[in-house]
Simulated scan of single mutants.
Amino acid sequence: MNNRESNASKEVQAVYEQLLEAWNNQDARGMSDLFTEDGESIGFDGSQSIGREEIFSHLNPIFEHHQTAQFVSKVKSVKFFNSDIALLRAIAGMVPPQSNDINPQVNTHHTLILVKKEETWRIQLFQNTPAQFHGTPELVEQMTEELRAVLRSSK
């Protein structure tokens, strides 16, 4: 990876970190503003929101009526299709309210496609896919332990 790609990778990862920070702070506007105008979010439950305002309208009632779990994540890769399009893959777990440990039942894969417009990276697609690994519980445990290591190092 050359210096330009390294800097771009850091910029892309920073957008992802902002997305999770906004979720963890229950900031629907902060999350939705990270998307392109016609960006798309596919939630853990399969819900689909298209467009910055629809994403906000979907998230805002969730945050207003529920204390959501906190995301803990680890970026697994950033791939560039060209200088203005990137794919970020990460694993994530959630720490429920009043807990200090990850709930393995809601581990997830995060996939983001980001585009750079006017020198700013924005999310075109965010997909939150359950990582249940049906029939292979050892993979759930492996992912959970990897995320617990991130959680421990952040304290």
Rank of each mutant, 00 (worst) to 15 (best):
M1C: 08
N2C: 11
E5D: 15
N7Y: 15
A8Q: 15
A14L: 10
V15Q: 10
Y16R: 04
A22R: 14
Q26D: 15
A28M: 11
A28Y: 15
G30P: 13
G30T: 13
M31I: 07
D33Y: 05
F35K: 06
T36L: 12
E37P: 02
E40Y: 02
I42N: 06
G43M: 04
G46T: 02
G46D: 03
Q48V: 11
I50D: 00
G51Q: 05
E53I: 11
E54L: 10
I55M: 08
F56A: 06
I62S: 07
F63E: 08
E64N: 15
H65I: 10
H65G: 15
H66Y: 14
Q67V: 10
Q70L: 07
V72W: 01
V72N: 01
S73N: 11
S73D: 05
V75R: 07
S77W: 14
V78Q: 02
K79E: 12
I85C: 13
I85G: 10
I85D: 07
Q98R: 13
Q98N: 12
Q98T: 07
S99M: 14
I102N: 05
P104Y: 06
V106A: 03
V106K: 04
V106Y: 01
T108M: 02
T108S: 03
H110M: 01
L112H: 10
I113N: 07
L114W: 11
E118T: 12
E119R: 14
R122K: 10
R122M: 05
Q124H: 09
Q127G: 02
T129V: 13
P130K: 02
Q132P: 01
F133H: 11
H134K: 08
G135Q: 00
E138C: 04
Q142C: 08
Q142V: 11
T144L: 00
T144H: 00
E146M: 14
E146F: 00
L147K: 03
A149W: 12
A149P: 06
V150G: 00
V150E: 04
V150M: 03
